[in-house]
């Protein structure tokens, strides 16, 4: 997913921004934060996958920067998952952090510990400039679902998140996890590999809005929203 967005990519971005526009007001209040915050949301928040398939999730980061108009130039996030069910196949760094800087690029790294079931994504903007103040995918993570995975709802959590302004002040962060509805296959040995495209159905309109509302309601129900900050 490192190339240009196609129609599906545009649809994804549409749905992401729309759902964030709706859910921003319903995210949990940061437990500890300055009075400006960054949102880290896994998107889609709910996705279905069969055992043996690959699930693709976007880590969407949204921030308005600080009162003086400064954006962020560093971010990091750790995603935690059940290593018996998932393994990280690929992490692609996306462009959120480069927003607003014609010459800006994103220097990123990802560290996977499939033993503990974590992947930590760290990014810096180079040059820092005024920093990024937008909402956009910062990374895409592809998870392989184990062929012998059982039917269950599995949560992929954002356990740590950090956004640093160009002023070096940290922002408060609010996070949103994702739930993968894993469906076992009858004969795991014959399961075919496939990709569960996390991209919502093409098109944009009432369906996307309703889907975003549904996601928000589901998240509220499962209490999968937390807040944290760290450096």
């Amino acid at each position: 997913m490192s190339g240009a967005f196609g129609r599906a990519g545009v649809a994804l971005a549409l749905a992401l921004a729309c759902s964030l526009a709706i859910v921003t007001g319903t995210f949990a209040v940061p437990a500890a934060a300055g009075d400006n915050v960054a949102i880290f949301a896994l998107e889609p928040a709910e996705v279905d996958a069969e055992a043996g398939e690959t699930v693709e999730l976007s880590l969407v980061v949204g921030t308005h920067g600080d009162y003086a108009g400064n954006g962020i130039d560093e971010l990091s996030a750790t995603l935690a998952y059940d290593p018996a069910v998932f393994s990280v196949a690929e992490v692609t760094h996306e462009g959120m952090l480069a927003h607003g800087g014609p010459d800006a690029s994103v220097d990123g790294s990802a560290t996977v510990d499939d033993g503990d079931g974590t992947v930590t994504i760290e990014q810096e903007r180079d040059p820092s400039g005024d920093g990024a103040a937008t909402t956009a995918p910062a990374a895409t993570v592809r998870f392989d679902v184990a062929p012998n995975a059982r039917t269950a709802n599995e949560t992929i959590e954002v356990t740590e998140a950090s956004a640093i302004l160009v002023t070096d002040y940290p922002q408060g962060t609010t996070v949103r996890d994702a739930t993968v509805a894993v469906e076992a296959v009858e004969n795991a040995g014959e399961a075919e590999g496939g990709v569960t495209d996390a991209i919502p159905a093409p098109g944009f309109g009432a369906g996307a809005v309703l889907a975003a509302v549904a996601l928000t309601a589901t998240l509220a129900a499962i209490g999968a929203r937390r807040a944290m900050w760290r450096r």
């Binding site: 971005a13 921004a17 462009g95 927003h99 690029s105 790294s109």
Partner: peptide, 20 residues
Amino acid sequence: DPTTSEGIDRRTFVTGVAAG
């Protein structure tokens, strides 16, 4: 480190913002 794209594809980023 499974990273596949260290840099930034300007068109990817810009298009995403426009879509947003």
